Computed example of a mutant assay.
Amino acid sequence: MSSLLFSLPELYQSYKSWVSKNPNNIGDWETSVKWISYFLAGRINNSHIVSELIYCLSNLLVMFNDRIIKKAYQIDSSASVEKIKLWLTVIEYSEVFCELSASKLWGNTGKWIIIVSIQIFKCISRMFLIFHYKEPIIQNPSIPVLNRKTISHQKRNISQSEFDSISFTLKRSGRVMRKIDSSPPIGLRDWKPLPQLGADNRNQLLETTISKRQLIAESIYIAKPIIHLTSMACFGTKTWKPWMISLALDITSMELYRSSTKKNIQALTPQQRLQISKRTMLLILYFLRSPMYEQYSKDRIHSFLIGLSKVPLASIICTPLAQYLPFWQNTYFYMWST
């Protein structure tokens, strides 16, 4: 037993070394764990909870490996911001499992207590990010999955201090020039210009500035889950009013973002535009949310999937999808999941 305890730190260090040296290969193992969660659904007792637990753990494993890779390649950000985003990401990955477990253990009351607690925590944390740390836009998950294909390229990039020691910037043109005494031998030169290390810093500066209109838009988006839950408590869980309020808040938030670009086409950074595009696409999910789903979408979607399952090979996907869609709709497609 003692030998096993002594070997655990060594195993952990070996795992960290392997992950940092093989950032692309580890993705195959992470994907395999996620597919296990899909395979277990509906095949054992309490399979939905077990499946969600495995899916949650697979996402946490990806996040854990990303943190190892970031430390290995010295891709760090502000420690305080990182801690808040870390807790938010853990909650975002595990909230469905927590809701299912609470419903199983404590019934409907316990489920709603967990839902409200999680959404209050998320709302306060996100508001703190945009008002205190000036985050330009809230992503979901808060810590996005690392693009590991660019890691090897980033490793070859020089650090800021090294960059400053071998180069200088022309005052009028802003062009980066290499210092004469730092030039490599002629035989080793590639004659390529220095990488524009300052470009990332300029993008980060742009992303830290957010107009009042954008701040209002993001605040509406962040507060939407709490407003929706409050409207459900006032008007009921199966009425149209919470659905319409949530949709109106989403549209208002996006319109405020779009109106800011009319005055200044560069008001939104590429990251912000990407997130707004994702939120626009997610409006399609309102067809799968109650009461729209029960009253209009359910029969039409089911008929479409059954009809499509008659096509050769399509039944492999469409038949299970038609069977599990009611459960997935009840579990995932709610309006406070932002």
Rank of each mutant, 00 (worst) to 15 (best):
Q204T: 14
I75W: 02
S182H: 09
N22V: 03
V19T: 06
E92T: 00
L61I: 03
E218T: 01
D181E: 11
D190I: 11
D66P: 01
K34T: 07
L206F: 11
P136Y: 15
K241Y: 08
I151M: 03
D76M: 11
F327K: 12
I284K: 07
G236K: 06
E99W: 13
I220D: 02
S80V: 09
G110D: 09
V90M: 05
T237W: 11
D299C: 02
N264E: 08
N140V: 13
S309F: 06
S260Q: 06
G187I: 04
K155P: 12
Q275I: 13
S77H: 03
R189H: 03
F39K: 10
L146S: 10
W35N: 10
R156N: 11
E92R: 00
I216V: 15
Y286G: 02
A233N: 07
Y38I: 09
Y293Q: 05
Q329W: 04
C56E: 01
K238F: 12
N22W: 05
D66G: 08
M292Q: 08
L40P: 00
T169F: 09
S173K: 05
Y334V: 15
Y324K: 13
K179N: 13
F168T: 03
L129H: 07
K83T: 08
S219G: 11
N203F: 15
P291H: 08
L61R: 10
S259Y: 09
W29K: 04
Q214M: 15
E207P: 04
M127N: 06
Y221W: 12
E95Y: 15
S161H: 03
I226K: 04
Y332S: 00
T252Q: 10
K238P: 04
L321V: 01
K262I: 14
A223W: 06
I143M: 05
L100R: 01
T252H: 02
N59Q: 10
I151C: 04
M281L: 12
V62C: 11
V145M: 11
S37F: 05
A217E: 12
K171H: 03
L188Y: 11
I166A: 08
Q160W: 15
N157K: 14
N140A: 13
S2G: 00
T280F: 15
S159Y: 07
A314L: 15
S14G: 14
T331S: 10
I118R: 04
Q204D: 15
C56T: 09
L61V: 01
F235Q: 05
L215F: 07
L282F: 14
I276L: 07
